[in-house]
Write a protein that binds this DNA or RNA. Structure first.
Length: 343
DNA sequence: AAGTGTGTTGAT
DNA sequence: TCAACACACTTG
């Protein structure tokens, strides 16, 4: 069993780790222009010349030297890209280069190989095949989601790890990898409620997810992959107060995204291969099995009503799994006007 | 209160 | 298509 025993602060992928991302391959950025200190938040920013401390302009934020990067009032940087006359927000970042890199990723995803990017070396090498496949294997919505949540680097690393160093991984390598079901749990109301945790039945927890003694109090982070190939990272720990093993951080997001309800069955699996990859899946028990109804409501009117099953896996040329490329942005013209309800 | 990201606009 | 700006909204 391989746990990533890192603490909370380092688990949020706050910055792209050069060791695991193409960030290490950034070409040297242009010399920084005279930097202005951007301070405070909200609309009343004071901008000072860093040398003289002179109030140059009491409102203006220093713009970024990178394409798709915009300053934020608090000194952080936002990344955005325009698609079909709509802005797609890519998140906020402490590091200007990280924001620029996020833009590059999005540009490559939305505009293809000819996209103009900030870092010329981005995906320019043959060694980047893994990342190209990764981009290809995920929908635009997924990539944007990863960028906004700062999980892109982690998920890319996970993906590369699964495919091994050999980028010529064949389809059968990926598909034929067998799994064993570790256990299933019928989730309780509290598992899907506001407690933001899933209780792992003690016998299963101690059998399959034994906590290293040093990690009992602090917990560990465990990665699970779902049927779409998305990697979920949960904090796993032991709560002395209730004497129970729980998945905490990350769990509520899973509940939300999968629209889990009490009575649904969550399955935990593990690859029997050497990677011991963990998987998580869920199913709806009872008469209303599996089909999920999706109503798309536009301007308050249900414009279509789709009954679908959970996404099936399709293997692409890269040997990865492709999830349905539902372009949320076409539907997301405005948060106020387009609502997707998963019922 | 601090931080995020959308609405809007003018430039390219 | 793009960035600048203001500020409503969300989060901690």
């Amino acid at each position: 069993m391989v746990f990533s025993c890192i603490d909370e602060s380092s688990s949020t992928s706050e910055s792209f780790s050069p060791a695991t991302t193409t960030a290490a391959k950034f070409s040297a950025p242009p010399l920084p222009p005279l930097r202005l200190n951007r301070m405070g938040s909200g609309g009343s920013n004071v901008v000072l010349d860093s040398k003289n401390g002179v109030d140059i302009d009491s409102r203006k934020l220093s713009s970024s030297k990178y394409k798709g990067v915009v300053p934020q009032p608090n000194g952080r940087w936002g990344a955005q890209i325009y698609v079909k006359h709509q802005r797609v927000w890519l998140g906020t970042f402490s590091d200007e280069e990280e924001a620029a890199h996020s833009y590059d990723i999005a540009a490559r995803k939305f505009r293809g190989r000819d996209a103009v990017v900030n870092f010329k070396t981005f995906l320019a090498s043959e060694d980047d095949n893994g990342e190209l496949c990764f981009l290809e294997a995920h929908s635009k919505a997924e990539i944007v989601d990863m960028l906004r949540k700062h999980t892109y680097a982690d998920e890319l690393a996970q993906s590369n790890k699964r495919n091994g160093a050999n980028t010529n991984t064949t389809q059968s390598d990926t598909v034929s990898r067998t799994r064993e079901v570790l256990f299933e749990k019928v989730v309780t109301p509290s598992d899907v409620g506001k407690l933001n945790r899933l209780v792992i039945p003690k016998q299963h927890a101690e059998k399959h997810f034994p906590l290293p003694s040093l990690s009992v109090t602090k917990g560990v982070l465990i990665n699970f992959e779902d049927v779409t190939g998305k990697v979920w990272r949960f904090r796993y720990s032991y709560w002395n107060s209730s004497q129970s093993y729980v998945l905490t951080k990350g769990w509520s997001q899973f509940v939300k995204e999968k629209n889990l309800r009490a009575g649904d069955v969550v399955t935990f699996e593990r690859s029997t291969g050497s990677d011991r990859q963990l998987y998580i899946d869920w199913k709806r028990s009872g008469p209303s099995k599996n089909p999920v109804q999706v109503v798309v409501r536009l301007f308050g009117v249900d414009i279509f009503n789709v009954t679908s099953t959970k996404p099936s896996n399709v293997v692409d040329a890269c040997g990865g799994k492709r999830s349905r490329d539902v372009d949320m942005f076409a539907l997301r013209c405005s948060k106020k006007h387009a609502i997707i309800n998963t019922l």
